[in-house]
Structures are given as C-alpha cells and as structure tokens.
Design a protein around this nucleic acid. Structure first.
Lengths: 150, 150
DNA sequence: CTGCGTGCAAAAACTTTGCAACAAT
DNA sequence: ATTGTTGCAAAGTTTTTGCACGCAG
C-alpha cells in the first residue's frame, strides 16, 4: 500500500510528535503492523512480531498499539468477540465493514454518499465528528447457501 | 416506551420460544432492563436489580442478558471502553449513535436514507444483512466550546 | 548520565463456567 | 419427579501495571 519511504516518514513523525524514543521493538512492531492487511488482534500481531524477535513481550505490543491508535495511525475495532482488533489507517481510504456472522469473513467497503449523510446528521446535532465506524452484520453469499443446506 | 402489557407479552413470548422457565430473577432483570432508557453495562444493570433483590448474582444477569441479546430483544454495544453495553430493542426504531469522545455523551439518531444505502451496499456484495451498527465519534456541542477553552 | 522503554510476572477488569442446592413445570 | 436455573466461587480472557534493568538520546 504505502511505499516504504513514506511509511518510514510517518512512523518517524509519530515518534517525534509524541516525543517517543525510537526503539528496536517499536520499529519492529510498527513495520510488522503496517505490512499487514486487515484486522489483527494483539495476539496475532504479537505472533508475527515474535517470528522476527522472540524476546518482544506482549505488553510492549499492547503499549505500542495503544499509542498508535491514539495518534490515529491505527483504528481499533471491536467486532463482538472479546478482542480489540487494529487495522492500519494510513495510505488508505476510510472504509467500513460487512461481517459474516457465520464464517467471520470481513469485507470492506466504502460509500461516499453515506459519509456525506453522516456528516449531515452530525451537523444537525451540533457534533464535530472525528471518526466513525459502521458495521453490517449478516450472512455472506456462500454462507447463505451453506446455511440453507445445514 | 412500551406499555406494560405489551412488554409482558414480549417477555412471555421470549420465554416460551426458547423454552425458558419463568423465574423470579429473570423477570426482575427483564423488567428492570426494559425500564431503562439508554445503554447499560451488566454492572450497572446489576446494581439496579440488587436494589430490588440483593440476592441476585451477577452471573445470572450475564446469562439473562446473553439470552436476551441472542433473541434480538436487546442489542449489545461496544463503545470502546472494555465493557459490553446493552440497550432495549423493542418498541423502538432502529437507531445509531453519536458519541462524544470527551464527555461520553451518547446521542441517538436515525436516518432512513443511510439505511437504504446500507442495504444497497450489502446487496452489491451478496450479503444478507441482519443487523448493523453505526457510531460517529467526535465532540458534542458543549465539549467543542469547553475544549477550546481548556 | 538521565529518563523513557522493556520484559516479566502479578494484577486488574470483565465474563464464563462447574457444581451443588433450588425452584418451576 | 424432572429438568432447567441460580448463586457462589473458581477459572478464563483480555488488557494493564509495578518494578528493576537496559537502551536511546
């Protein structure tokens, strides 16, 4: 998605703006995270990080992702299972999710018209919106077929 | 919202359909829950239930709310703090939420046009949607003012 | 050097579950 | 009687935190 140089710049800015030290662990976690495409729990991310450096603790991953999310470079999602999932929020358009309640498949979509209407609604209520989430739950195409048979 | 008789009928149907026994505790929890207006954590609901009957355990509240949500009579929400919140889902139109990230205020709204567009998006992806969530995060009117000063 | 960051393990927060007593049908 | 339900406490999950050591600036 994002090219390496741009990503580096973003990571650097993130560190600078918050006065964070640039450590081996943070870089590894961020690189790993931004290489991913999709929605990952800390546990999953940790597994990938450990493949590179088994000594990184899960606490560091939690701490780093929390900082990232606060800075807006990652979005925290909550799809109903008890875990927080993060997804990269740079170099991509905002998007929303269709979630299959049977197989867990997650499909992303975006719709400008909806975004416009959201802004209008917010304005009507005097809100200044900084982010939003929209999730549609249901059955994906193949689960509708499978579900009928099962 | 719902009048007492209708509510009783709904609760009764809920019990019948799932073959649940009609216990003192379940009734108390359900009555208490449906009297509420808003989004409540199990902890909060439990506190209100205990006011009536201090012997009800929190486990029963968890179990009951889980059943209710599965039956579609309550909606489970996740607003980012680590707790599940439930809100009554009978006698009301579907609605979505504006959430103030500063003071935590929750404003409800509904917008048919958005719902229509959601359906259209789902259809395009072959999805059969059964429910959805939409949350807009930002600053409410008073926090925008307060925020500027702080 | 100085202080932030890390790893580890303990703790916290929330939710689920095993089991024996209990109540609804 | 029979079977589902409850309360309690223990255990499970996910996430946070205290503390001593270590590394970046």
């Amino acid at each position: 998605m994002t090219d390496r140089a741009e990503r580096e710049a973003i990571i650097q800015r993130f560190m600078d703006e918050r006065g964070l030290k640039s450590t081996r662990q943070r870089h590894l976690i961020l690189e790993t995270f931004f290489d991913l495409d999709g929605h990952f729990s800390v546990e999953q991310l940790w597994a990938k990080v450990r493949a590179h450096n088994p000594r990184v603790s899960v606490a560091t991953v939690y701490r780093t992702m929390k900082l990232l999310a606060e800075s807006g470079l990652a979005h925290a999602q909550n799809f109903g299972d008890g875990q927080t999932r993060y997804e990269p929020a740079i170099g991509r358009e905002h998007h929303d999710h269709l979630i299959c309640t049977r197989c867990g498949a997650i499909i992303e979509f975006e719709n400008d018209r909806i975004e416009q209407l959201q802004d209008a609604v917010a304005k009507k209520h005097g809100f200044k919106v900084s982010s939003h989430k929209m999730e549609l739950y249901g059955l994906c195409r193949s689960c509708q077929k499978a579900g009928a048979g099962a």
